[in-house]
Simulated assay, not measured.
Amino acid sequence: MKFKVLGCSGSRQPGHNLTSYCINDTILLDAGAVCGYLDVEDQERITHILVSHANLDHTKDIAFLADNLASAVFAGRKGPVQVCSQISVLKSLKDHLFNDDIWPDFTAIPSKEQPTIVLEPIEFGVPLHLGGLNVIAFPVPHSSGSTGFALYGEDPAEHVVVTGDTGPNGGWTSFVNDLHFPVNNLVVECSFPNELEGLALASDHLTPRLLKQKVERLKIKPVLYVTHLKAIYTRQIQKELQHELAGYQYHLPRKGVVYDF
């Protein structure tokens, strides 16, 4: 599985792209940094977007991607992109983004019969089959409908689990422990330094200390890919991770890095 990081920052600063991953060149997991990274030819290869939640830093480039692809759909060179998420997340996108006010309604452009994007609801725990991969969505504690994703191939050794934005509560560690294969690759967030734990809890995010408490509930020690660091606290968080995650193998992804899971 080719897993390319288009962006993984928890805040927008020069040199820091917002959350977006491109999988096997055709599937996006979140869309915070697509159109500023992929050229139009690569954008036209996208067939599906898995959306973890409706927050703008994870969804803003769905709007610009749709705008870029509409002409290709109109010309018959490309079918619609399927935007897949929980019903509440899709409703937010339709009501507050693709509403012909904030942005054109590309679910009906070029026409209702030939849209640029379609909104496809998914259910927790029900496997999907996208582009040769299996996908299972699971709930995480954050904003309404927040979702993590387990993605795996025909051989489950080819896999990655992505929590998306998450606070310390909720049972996603039980979901990971109960998967039918051992999870060796876990992409998980850590947004704030330990001294801002109160802010992390109020906004359903993690600190290095809270992340340690969370992953200690897992049956095995996966390789951790720690993302969503708030840019202004990057150095402080990195220093604290060295202490809190002693004994764990972990990476700090950056834009442009490609992992082979």
Results as ranks from 00 to 15, higher is better:
87 I>Q: 09
88 S>E: 13
91 K>D: 12
91 K>C: 12
93 L>E: 02
99 N>Q: 02
101 D>M: 08
105 D>V: 08
106 F>N: 03
107 T>L: 10
109 I>C: 14
109 I>S: 10
109 I>A: 13
111 S>V: 08
113 E>L: 10
114 Q>E: 10
116 T>Y: 15
117 I>W: 05
119 L>K: 04
124 F>H: 10
124 F>P: 01
125 G>P: 01
126 V>Q: 14
126 V>M: 15
129 H>I: 11
131 G>S: 11
132 G>W: 03
133 L>I: 04
134 N>R: 13
137 A>T: 06
137 A>G: 13
137 A>Q: 04
141 P>T: 13
144 S>M: 11
144 S>P: 07
144 S>W: 11
145 G>L: 14
146 S>I: 05
150 A>W: 00
154 E>A: 14
156 P>M: 02
157 A>I: 07
157 A>Y: 06
159 H>Q: 13
163 T>C: 12
168 P>T: 09
172 W>T: 07
174 S>V: 13
175 F>D: 01
175 F>K: 00
176 V>M: 03
176 V>I: 07
180 H>T: 01
181 F>C: 02
181 F>Q: 04
185 N>V: 06
186 L>S: 02
188 V>H: 06
189 E>K: 09
192 F>N: 14
194 N>Q: 05
194 N>E: 11
196 L>T: 06
198 G>E: 10
206 L>D: 05
206 L>P: 00
207 T>R: 04
207 T>W: 00
208 P>T: 04
208 P>W: 02
209 R>I: 15
210 L>V: 00
213 Q>Y: 01
214 K>L: 15
214 K>V: 13
215 V>C: 05
217 R>Q: 12
218 L>M: 07
222 P>L: 05
